[in-house]
Design a binder for these strands. Structure first.
Lengths: 111, 111
DNA sequence: ATCATTAATCGTATATTTGCGATATAAGAT
DNA sequence: ATCTTATATCGCAAATATACGATTAATGAT
């Protein structure tokens, strides 16, 4: 009956989950890798590398953009996407710090 | 027509995506946090903390377990779950190393 | 042996994601 | 002005995820 209960959690939990969600598909991991290897990347090159249709790649790019992990400028038929390192580092450190802190407290495993 | 193309990507990409997917819901982030704060954690305590039905929490626990992020021993009516730090660190470092390496190559942003 | 407790599983409804082809859009080339 | 190229968006179908209540299973208590 009641769906989509995500807003009942803390903002930080939602943010982290959103970040993870953006990277929860191998195509998007692959896209990030391709983008990270170049300074300027045209979408078409990504399409060539991935085993997916152009429209699907465009959709994945959109999701990564919405999540803030990449930024892109649309310049007519030629789009330039690249990784938004700032946002990426923010999440990455938030993520690792959360679990590193917890880990210190809890050296011995229980089961 | 063709769906579920995930197997067309590298194993590493799939693994990373699977790890991210396991954490792509705030409820599962919250569960990991609760588990990390105790040495032994009974599922019921998690149910009390989360704004979700018992069956739903059980489902989330199952997903975390399938992803290898937590391990649990079922002991009759009393289950003990805890974080699988080993698997967690493996992914965590794989994850950060991937992007740290890439970042070094690519100090200047392009757009 | 029966009851209470706790957690997993089943069945089901709805929402979201994934993917593609077709179409639209926007700029450069002819 | 028309054609080409590159990318975004639309519309749709299928798969997966999310959530719950009801049921089952398994142990401990009475």
């Amino acid at each position: 009956m009641a769906f989509h209960k995500k807003e009942e959690f803390t903002q930080k939990e939602q943010d982290l989950a959103g970040f993870a969600k953006a990277m929860s598909h191998p195509a998007r991991i692959a896209i990030l890798k391709v983008l990270a290897q170049r300074n300027e990347c045209i979408c078409g090159e990504i399409v060539d590398v991935l085993p997916l249709a152009q429209s699907t790649v465009s959709q994945h790019l959109k999701e990564l953009k919405n999540a803030g992990l990449i930024s892109g400028t649309i310049d007519g038929p030629r789009s330039c996407y690249c990784i938004n390192w700032k946002a990426f580092e923010k999440f990455s450190s938030e993520f690792t710090s959360l679990f590193n802190n917890l880990k210190v407290k809890n050296e011995k495993a229980c089961c």
